[in-house]
């Protein structure tokens, strides 16, 4: 595999984790447009740990994930009072707050950025991305996921049957934030340079887009969305200036044809059946 495709695959893996971070939160019916901020927290914290304190990368990623998870849970508390578009706007505000913090945080370079990280291979990125995707797919088969789905479908009814909806929603936010932080740590060590602009609103939207495009009802949908978002603009390079317009058009067409995203349970069943029949 050429180093170019390896680089694109690494980008896909990093985006997959960001998309999964949104997917986990979305599974409880909450839309976060601020996961770029959790990614930034993971990127900066893991970079500081590896560069300044010489902490091994894997340990640094775990520490960053835990820290971001705690912050995510704290952010979720006030967010419990908000729903729908209001919650989404609150997470946008949180994202801008974090980006502005790093912009003025001169100890880690401020707007000048932070560097010194060791480059990581595409294999290492996918070890994390694949591992977390499998963990999410296993989670989808668990009782916890059913509870999350219950909260997603009807929070009041879920509460009435005895489910602790507060814990479910805060837990989803915390886990989503932790996954986004790992995405950030891998991004920082793959690109060996980070700056606040890397973790703005655009990044959060990219995560949501990967989920919506790939499929928002199944974990592997994020994989499909991430691969498409990274590889499609590259494959459209031959049409030069029109590639982004063509990419946008394709996105609209896909969403018109399949509102639930490309991959859903029905398609997975169909594909599985075809393979079984063969």
């Amino acid at each position: 595999m050429s180093t170019y495709y390896a680089s694109l695959l690494a980008e896909s893996g990093i985006l997959l984790l960001g998309a999964l971070s949104v997917y986990i939160i979305l599974a409880t019916g909450q839309l976060s447009l601020g996961n770029g901020a959790f990614m930034g927290i993971g990127a900066y914290l893991s970079s500081y740990l590896t560069v300044a304190l010489n902490v091994p990368l894997t340990l640094a990623l775990v520490i960053s994930a835990i820290a971001a998870g705690i912050i995510g849970a704290i952010v979720a508390f006030p967010a419990l009072r908000l729903k729908g578009i209001y919650l989404a706007m609150a997470t946008v505000g949180f994202g801008e707050m974090v980006r502005s913090f790093f912009l003025n945080f001169d100890a880690m370079g401020g707007s000048g950025g932070y560097r010194g990280m060791q480059h990581i291979s595409v294999g290492y990125v996918w070890l994390w991305a694949g591992g977390i995707l499998i963990a999410v797919m296993l989670l989808e088969r668990s009782r916890v996921w059913l509870e999350m789905q219950a909260v997603h479908d009807d929070e009041t009814a879920a509460g009435l049957i005895g489910l602790n909806t507060t814990v479910t929603k805060i837990g989803a936010f915390g886990v989503g934030a932790a996954v986004a932080a790992i995405s950030g740590g891998l991004f920082a060590h793959h690109n060996v340079y980070i700056e606040p602009a890397n973790f703005g609103f655009d990044r959060s939207i990219e995560f949501v887009l990967a989920v919506i495009l790939g499929g928002s009802t199944v974990g592997p949908g994020s994989l499909v969305g991430s691969l498409l978002l990274v590889f499609l603009p590259e494959f459209l390079r031959p049409i030069a200036d029109w590639r982004l317009a063509a990419f946008g058009t394709l996105l609209i067409v896909v969403l018109l044809v399949r509102r639930q995203g490309i991959l859903d349970r029905s398609l997975i069943r169909t594909l599985t059946f075809r393979r079984a029949a063969a």
């Binding site: 912009l103 707007s111 700056e195 602009a197």
Partner: peptide
């Protein structure tokens, strides 16, 4: 411009 690395520096 605080968002632009060069301008900020």
């Amino acid at each position: 411009d605080a968002k632009d690395a060069t301008a900020s520096t």
